[in-house]
Amino acid sequence: MTDQAVTAREGFVELDWDGRRQRVEFARVGVDDPAAPLLVFLHEGLGSVSMWRDFPQQMAQALGWRGLVYSRPAYGRSTPKRAEDRWRPDFMHRQAQEVLPQVLAALGHAPSSSGERLWLFGHSDGGSIALLHAAAFPDQVAGLVVCAPHLFVEALTVASIEEAREAYASTDLRAKLAKYHDDPDSAFRGWNDIWLDPDFLAWNIEAEVASVRCPVLAVQGQDDQYGTMAQIDRIAQGLPAGQVELLKLDACGHSPHRDQPKALIDRVVDFVHRRAGPDSRSK
């Protein structure tokens, strides 16, 4: 790991993970100020650095913070999944407890060396990963924003993912995903296969979420085709009163940052300033 790679605005870092050397695509957004807080963006189950478009830049700029975006292994321009590999039901735990800490360390944000307490912004699977990371490392996370996170498997989610499987086989969905992933089969199959695996139906992270100690803003669209309000309601029910704030958006599907970006950014800025204090632009 070189100093140039650590300080670059975009590029790749390399990790030893899952039995091999893998590269991870990253981009830095927001202010270029090492004293500003860091917000790490964790993408959805079919996401990548490029699929966020300019939302991380808008969000970080509105806060006056630094932002870090990366594509998990198998996504974007990161190392693709091998065709024979099959993810296990603990795949989000491994991303939260193994991959994210390695990415942070490779980019100079390891809490043991930097002293930083991170904020995480996670969408869908990325929201679940954010919650799992905060539960595993409660002293290292200052706050969470989770949009359309999954805490357990719902019939609605499975039905929508089955529809996505049919669309991938019979429409131009693969070609559309190829705009954001070097290997769209890697991204799609990894996500789709595990969510439709019978062994995944019992997946539930409510016990882990009960260990989260930081403030949480949980966001869900009223028209989300991949999850119901029960997902974020369970976060509020499982944590002490006052720790969690809920934002339920009308005219909004599974991606609040695309469907309602202004409402989301405005609420996140308000949430952060209240929870992190009036000097949150620099701390």
Results as ranks from 00 to 15, higher is better:
5 A>W: 05
8 A>K: 00
9 R>N: 03
9 R>T: 13
13 V>E: 02
32 D>C: 07
35 A>P: 08
36 A>F: 05
39 L>S: 03
40 V>G: 11
43 H>G: 07
43 H>I: 00
45 G>C: 09
46 L>G: 09
47 G>F: 03
53 R>F: 12
62 A>Y: 07
63 L>I: 04
66 R>W: 08
68 L>G: 02
71 S>C: 01
75 Y>P: 00
75 Y>T: 07
78 S>G: 03
82 R>L: 15
84 E>K: 08
91 F>R: 10
91 F>G: 08
91 F>W: 12
101 P>Y: 03
107 L>H: 08
109 H>G: 08
115 G>I: 01
125 D>E: 05
125 D>L: 02
128 S>E: 04
134 A>T: 04
135 A>D: 09
146 V>M: 07
146 V>S: 05
147 C>R: 05
149 P>F: 02
154 E>F: 13
160 S>M: 08
171 T>Q: 00
171 T>V: 04
184 P>N: 06
192 N>P: 10
195 W>Q: 13
197 D>M: 01
199 D>Y: 14
199 D>N: 13
201 L>M: 14
203 W>I: 06
211 S>L: 12
219 V>I: 10
237 Q>V: 01
247 L>R: 02
249 L>T: 10
249 L>C: 12
249 L>G: 04
251 A>I: 11
259 D>Q: 04
259 D>T: 05
259 D>F: 02
261 P>K: 06
262 K>Y: 09
266 D>C: 11
274 R>G: 13
275 R>V: 06
277 G>W: 03
280 S>R: 04
